[in-house]
Amino acid sequence: MIEALGMRAFPPRLPEQPIFYPVLTEDYAVKIARDWNVPASGRGHVLRFAILRGFIDNYEVREAGGREHLEYWIPSEDLADFNAAIVGPIVLVRSFP
């Protein structure tokens, strides 16, 4: 299931969320959505989007507990710039109710 959301930006982070963690693979995103988010909140979603290389190259790819768990750590104060660097729509790839 791939569905355009009409969403063009991610919402501001909550005070207890100082970092935005976009991940590099769909498999890792599925694991987070299904295995962590569903038990914690009852649902999880996998989104896909493109971002300008010139922006994202300012951040390191980080390993989060294993070689297959690759992500960027975007400080919440950089989220507006991150959103401005998104190219095209944010797309819903999978949902786990």
Rank of each mutant, 00 (worst) to 15 (best):
R62C: 11
Y59I: 01
D27I: 05
E26S: 08
Y72I: 00
W73V: 09
E71G: 04
R67K: 10
V61C: 02
V30Y: 07
I74M: 08
L14D: 11
L52M: 14
E16R: 12
F20R: 06
P11Q: 14
P75R: 04
H45V: 02
R43D: 00
L24V: 05
E71I: 03
P11H: 14
K31Y: 12
V61W: 01
V23Q: 02
G66Y: 04
P11N: 12
Y28H: 14
F20I: 11
G65V: 02
Y72T: 02
E68V: 09
D57I: 14
R62N: 08
N37T: 00
P15G: 09
Q17Y: 15
P18A: 13
P22W: 12
W36C: 02
V38H: 03
R48I: 03
G54P: 03
E71W: 08
G54I: 11
K31M: 06
D27M: 08
P75Y: 09
E16C: 11
R13N: 14
L24N: 06
R43F: 02
I51P: 10
R53L: 05
N37E: 05
S41P: 01
R67P: 13
E16Q: 07
H69V: 04
P18W: 06
E71P: 03
A40V: 08
R13A: 15
G65D: 08
P18K: 05
P11K: 15
G54V: 06
Y28W: 10
E71H: 12
I74R: 11
W73M: 10
R62G: 00
A33M: 07
V30P: 00
E60T: 07
R48L: 09
H69N: 08
A33R: 07
N58Y: 01
P39N: 09
R53A: 11
P11F: 06
R67F: 06
I51R: 07
G42W: 00
Q17C: 07
I56W: 07
Q17F: 12
E71R: 11
L24H: 04
Y72W: 09
L24G: 05
P11A: 14
F55L: 06
V23C: 10
G54S: 13
D35V: 02
R43V: 00
V61P: 00
G66F: 07
Y59W: 14
V38E: 02
I32D: 01
